[in-house]
Design a protein around this nucleic acid. Structure first.
Lengths: 150, 150
DNA sequence: TAAATTATGTTGTATTTGCAACAAAAATCT
DNA sequence: AGATTTTTGTTGCAAATACAACATAATTTA
């Protein structure tokens, strides 16, 4: 059995760790860059969808965006038609930080993929997307309280 | 720019989340399975190396293994030649839990890789190993306090 | 060999994370 | 329309995470 997932875990933790260290200078605390990036790229998204997208607990997301809003990186706006939801938008400050995050993430991508040629990168990306789609089904299933049998 | 790392992050968080939920029934708290697996597969490993292997902070590792030892999943043994280090070994209970973890991880692997054929899995594995090697260099660099320029 | 540096491990503290439990709006069902 | 279920959001609490700072053994350097 090829330990594909173990490699993925190592890469993910290493990169997350690097990012968290590097974003401290922009007053972004642990994990926050994840949310801010998605909000900048999907303005108007709501908390619940954001959590699904990132694959993190709903309540963790709630607190992360609360802090992002408190520190003026994002803004929560009420919806006219739906009193329940709050749409999330980046502020100028948030969008600014986003530029830095992109720069850092792009660099990390480059480092991570160094030595791979264009075609290999494409193959990797395609395969990972399939893995991700497979995985997110189970994540949602288990998060809802269902039991997997194995 | 293909967002390879973003896919990796999503997969990793989803799977870690699933594992943490599924291992609660074995009284393994968040993250502990990671350490236990490595200790079972590399008996005698020391804390420091374990942290490097998993790509997690040294101090987090220290506390995780302290708890694993407290709950009798592992044992810390002194070394005769080196008074500083403590070698880590699974107990029977720990090795037992390891069997469950393997079963779960293997299942997650299967789910994650479903739809990919043998050759695709091999390619993915090989590519991920290269990505991991690239990434861990930077992780160690940044963790030591060095600054990346980009 | 003495001094300086590195490796390994620990503890204090602040923060994040996530489960459980709750609340209320919206959507679905009968 | 009224009842039920689902969606979205929040808070209390316990635990994990990681940085900083420290301690000591081991190793390297001068």
């Amino acid at each position: 059995m090829k330990e594909v997932l173990r490699e993925i875990g190592m890469v993910a933790r290493a990169l997350d760790s690097i990012s968290n260290i590097e974003f401290k200078q922009y007053a972004l605390s642990k994990g926050q860059y994840l949310y801010l990036v998605r909000i900048c790229e999907t303005p108007g998204i709501i908390q619940e969808k954001l959590a699904e997208m990132i694959k993190v607990d709903r309540t963790t997301t709630a607190r992360a965006i609360k802090k992002l809003a408190m520190n003026d990186f994002i803004e929560k706006r009420d919806d006219e038609n739906n009193k329940k939801i709050k749409k999330l938008f980046p502020t100028d400050k948030g969008y600014n930080a986003y530029q830095f995050i992109r720069r850092e993430n792009d660099f990390s991508n480059k480092v991570a993929l160094s030595g791979l040629n264009e075609s290999e990168i494409n193959i990797l990306f395609k395969l990972l997307q399939r893995v991700r789609k497979n995985t997110e089904k189970d994540w949602e299933y288990v998060k809802k309280g269902n039991k997997r049998i194995y």
